[in-house]
Structures are given as C-alpha cells and as structure tokens.
Simulated assay, not measured.
Amino acid sequence: MQAIFWTVEEVAQRAKLFYDNGIRQQVECDDNIGKMIVIDAKTGEYGIDKTGVETALKLKQKKPNARLFTMRIGYKDIS
C-alpha cells in the first residue's frame, strides 16, 4: 500500500471536514465533552477515549499508514 504524503495542515483540514460534516452531530454529547477524538483523515474513521492514545494505537494497528488527527471534543478550535 502506498503511503499518503499530506502536510500537517492538509491532514488537519481533511479531518476537520469529516468532523464538521457529520461526526460532530454524533459525538458532541455530555458524555463525550472533554474526551479526545482521533480521526483518520483519509477515511473518516474515528474513535474516542479519554486521552486519544488507545484510539490512535487501534487505528494505526488497522492501518499503519493512517494519517491521524486528534482533537478535544466540545472545545473551540483556535486554529
């Protein structure tokens, strides 16, 4: 499988598009506020946990070349 060569900014932009166009409505609830979401910028696959570490490891195990983006749920993006 060929590696994807995206800049950090491209990874962030793609992941935020997935988040804004569907994931947000599914995950922004009281139980998840403050948790970390890790999004695969290519597929939109994501996972949620307290620190993001477990989810990132699981996603990387499934797809070693995945380009992942992590953000805190329910907090304003300052970028």
Rank of each mutant, 00 (worst) to 15 (best):
M1T: 08
M1S: 09
Q2C: 05
Q2P: 10
Q2Y: 07
A3D: 08
I4V: 09
I4S: 03
I4D: 00
F5K: 10
F5E: 11
W6I: 02
V8G: 05
V8S: 07
E9W: 01
V11A: 06
V11T: 10
A12V: 12
A12E: 13
A12C: 10
A12Y: 10
Q13K: 14
Q13E: 14
Q13R: 14
Q13S: 09
Q13M: 06
R14L: 03
R14P: 00
K16D: 10
K16C: 00
L17I: 11
F18E: 00
D20S: 11
D20G: 03
D20N: 14
N21H: 10
I23W: 06
R24C: 05
Q25W: 11
Q25I: 13
Q25V: 13
Q26V: 14
Q26I: 13
Q26K: 15
V27M: 08
E28I: 08
E28W: 02
C29R: 13
C29I: 09
D30H: 08
D30F: 06
D30R: 04
D30I: 07
D30S: 12
I33V: 14
G34F: 02
K35R: 15
M36F: 12
M36Y: 14
I37N: 01
V38R: 02
V38L: 08
I39T: 02
D40E: 08
D40T: 06
A41I: 04
T43K: 09
G44F: 10
G44D: 03
E45T: 05
G47F: 06
I48Y: 05
I48A: 01
I48P: 10
I48F: 04
D49G: 14
D49R: 01
D49F: 12
K50F: 15
T51H: 15
T51A: 12
G52L: 13
G52N: 13
V53Q: 13
V53L: 15
V53Y: 14
V53E: 15
E54T: 11
T55S: 07
T55F: 00
T55Y: 02
T55G: 00
T55W: 01
T55D: 01
L57Q: 12
L57C: 06
L57E: 13
L57D: 09
K58C: 05
K58W: 03
K60Y: 12
Q61F: 03
K62L: 09
K63I: 05
P64A: 02
P64Q: 11
N65T: 11
N65Q: 10
N65S: 08
A66P: 03
R67D: 06
L68F: 08
L68R: 04
F69S: 07
M71Q: 14
R72H: 03
I73M: 12
G74P: 12
G74W: 14
G74C: 09
Y75P: 04
Y75V: 15
Y75M: 14
D77T: 13
D77R: 15
D77P: 11
I78P: 06
I78Y: 15
S79V: 08
S79P: 04
S79R: 13
S79F: 12
